[in-house]
């Protein structure tokens, strides 16, 4: 459809973008207002007598927020690496090889992606406890990888399918085995797809809350979402610091999204639309 965009269209779009962005703008404002102006007469004003960066300093100086960020990055990167390793093999097999039980395997993957994770938390918690894996990166990477696998395999199968058969056939004619074809021909060709999958897996791991909340309870091993949730005291909310922390975790995400939006969108929508 190539309808022309009129004024009413731009107005509606502007309202939509403003509604989406408003919470971020407002929280950014709260993070730079001097604490005295968060409440009372100036609470709803954009222009206040004093702005400050103290909240950002305080988030890192008075809370282990740097540690939370490090943990989230470590867990996200590890999950991403392990997931891509396992999923690239599996998705190649699905896309290119015929084997009995393929439909069953795909059905199980679909079922796991719909799975309520709370239904596995009690035995996993007890296992992590007895294996000494609580408050370690492995304690989170193991469940994260498992629940990322269905989506990762799904996306990557689509990418493998889009590579023309002729390239593989040529390699096979030269006597290359399935593994060599996989490594030397397919993986390099599919690397844009690998990259898209990697971003989505990383973002999912970065978001995860339930396992992180229950398995890594030690402050030095918490991830960002749980760490931010723990900023609130029993009755008090240090809104200045919370805002600064929220802005700090949101900015890298916005950069990531701006850089890779096309890839992310093609990945996210690949399962929902038939080709």
């Amino acid at each position: 459809m190539n309808r022309q965009a009129g004024y009413s269209f731009y107005a509606a779009t502007a309202i939509f973008v403003a509604a989406v962005m408003f919470p971020f703008v407002w929280i950014f404002l709260a993070s730079v207002k001097a604490p005295a102006y968060l409440y009372g007469r100036y609470a709803f004003d954009v222009v206040v007598p004093e702005y400050t960066l103290d909240n950002y300093v305080s988030v890192f100086a008075n809370h282990p927020f740097g540690r939370y960020l490090l943990n989230s990055f470590a867990v996200g990167l590890l999950t991403m690496t392990v997931t891509l390793g396992i999923a690239s093999f599996a998705s190649y097999a699905i896309a290119r090889l015929h084997f009995p039980g393929k439909t069953l395997f795909l059905g199980v993957l679909l079922a796991i992606s719909m799975f309520p994770q709370i239904a596995t938390i009690s035995p996993l918690f007890l296992f992590m406890q007895s294996a000494g894996l609580r408050n370690t990166y492995a304690g989170l990477v193991i469940p994260y990888t498992t629940y990322a696998l269905p989506l990762a395999i799904w996306y990557m199968t689509t990418f493998f399918r889009n590579i023309p058969y002729e390239l593989e056939e040529a390699a096979k004619m030269d006597g290359a085995s399935a593994l060599v074809v996989f490594y030397k021909v397919l993986v390099p060709l599919v690397s844009p797809g690998l990259f898209t999958t990697a971003i989505i897996v990383f973002v999912d791991a970065w978001h995860e809350f339930l396992f992180s909340l229950t398995i890594n309870t030690k402050e030095s091993m918490m991830t960002v979402p749980v760490g931010i949730a723990m900023f609130q005291g029993e009755f008090t909310f240090p809104w200045g610091e919370i805002s600064a922390a929220a802005v700090t975790v949101t900015v890298p995400i916005i950069v990531l999204v701006l850089l890779f939006q096309r890839r992310i969108i093609s990945g996210l929508t690949s399962g929902a639309v038939k080709e």
Binding site: I228, F231, L268
Partner: peptide, 25 residues
């Protein structure tokens, strides 16, 4: 492109963080 990025940002924010932001609002 700008609109598409705006669409992705709420998706890319951790739910716990956006819940905190809304708590403030």
């Amino acid at each position: 492109g700008l609109v598409r990025a705006a669409v992705l940002i709420p998706w890319a924010t951790p739910t716990a963080v956006s819940a905190m932001i809304w708590h403030f609002l």
